[in-house]
Write a protein that binds this DNA or RNA. Structure first.
Lengths: 222, 222
DNA sequence: AAACTATTCAATAAATTTATTGAATAGAAA
DNA sequence: TTTCTATTCAATAAATTTATTGAATAGTTT
């Protein structure tokens, strides 16, 4: 094998991996699986895809070794193959947000049109935690909280929030977080909280961004 | 715009960027441009592509805002749009090396079959520099050295190395580096050096990996 | 064993991407 | 202006990717 053949092989293998990511539905699946494992049916539902279609996309990711599989009873659960997958997704996400004005505008306009609140970054949240003056609120579905959440965060899925407001302290600031910068659960939570007179902001990034930085995480029994 | 429309727009924009990367030739172009800017003709030559074909791929990258353009006289020079592009390339590269056994095998086998030497990582090189017992050798083409190189590195392009051996000290260890883990300039240099009785190893990563970590860099005049 | 269910497979048409040509263009040089 | 040259464009055929459909499969449950 000469130099050129070697390069051709390497780049074509890398392009195969990149191609497996280069589809809107598959990117959405990857972001979902960054929260934990899901069955085909659940993935299909969350991404609004027909099941056969979701399965087909999952096969593409499986062949590229982007996801791993594990069967439990009748269901087959998919999960990200490892931390590098999320790192790559995040690099793409940041590249997109920085380079493509369209994406930044989409995110800002969508958020602003509905919830014109400030947000905090992970670094800012860490400082608030050190000062001890913050309540961290996980507003994702409870199953995702159970699979892993920011240490000391309280679980209060969006659909329960309004009824459980009294459990939250009014004296300290509340920071709500969800799946990531493209997820609006936290925005909706902040809107409810602010309206009810709480001091609340959203975390810009999501739980997987926290975890990948090896910041303190807890997992619930179950 | 509702939540689903918002998500569809965001993921489809991100997929567009990802698709612009998802081609072996374009990945190779990106790795080349990580060394500095090049004209269309130079890019075509380095990647063994017909000029019209290289130009076509560059248009794809330009539309996706992965590269920027700058005209000088008759030539049009392309460069990476910003640091996030290289970060994304690196994430893909690491994902590939880790997940795809084929790539790791390709790299190891190709290197081992020709140059069975050890290599050092950037972290290891930093320690050697602190101890002051290392000569750093940049074996890329001189133009790439001039556009930026590791601080205190000596430029000795591969094709000049054999004739200029006497310029190198025999008492200290030599670490040669080149474009990155898929580039074999440094392997070839180490082979020549070891044969001539020098103590030499290659740097596993390349200059852009050094630069992105904000380690000390120098740029030559001109 | 039979019935059931979550998932995968297979076949097809439509859409997209790619390589290959040769012509067109835009700016530099004469 | 005319000529020259690096680059881009345009058209086409081949290859690949995608959505859609309905059937097949593998493992559970009855």
């Amino acid at each position: 094998m000469n130099k050129r053949e070697f390069k051709d092989s390497v780049y074509s293998e890398l392009a195969k991996i990149t191609k497996s990511l280069a589809n809107p539905h598959r990117l959405e699946i990857i972001e979902l699986l960054a929260q934990g494992e899901y069955s085909v049916e659940q993935i299909a539902e969350q991404t609004h895809l027909p099941v056969a279609n979701a399965s087909q996309h999952l096969q593409v990711l499986k062949v590229a070794q982007i996801v791993d599989v594990n069967r439990q009873g009748n269901f087959i659960y998919y999960r990200l193959a490892n931390a590098n997958v999320f790192k790559t997704w995040r690099a793409l996400r940041e590249l997109g947000i920085e380079r493509i004005a369209t994406i930044e505008k989409l995110v800002k306009n969508f958020r602003k049109s509905k919830f014109d609140f400030e947000s905090v970054t992970i670094d800012q949240l860490i400082k608030k935690i050190e000062l001890g003056k913050v309540t961290i609120l996980d507003v994702r579905p409870e199953t995702e909280y159970n699979k892993g959440h920011i240490a000391n965060a309280i679980s209060m899925p969006l659909d329960q929030l309004s009824k459980r407001l009294k459990e939250l302290p009014k004296c300290t600031e509340i920071v709500a977080y969800c799946r990531g910068p493209f997820c609006v659960f936290a925005d909706e939570a902040v809107a409810i909280l602010v309206k009810a007179g709480y001091k609340a902001t959203r975390l810009e990034e999501g739980f997987p961004d926290w975890k990948i930085q090896e910041l303190p995480v807890e997992i619930s029994m179950n």
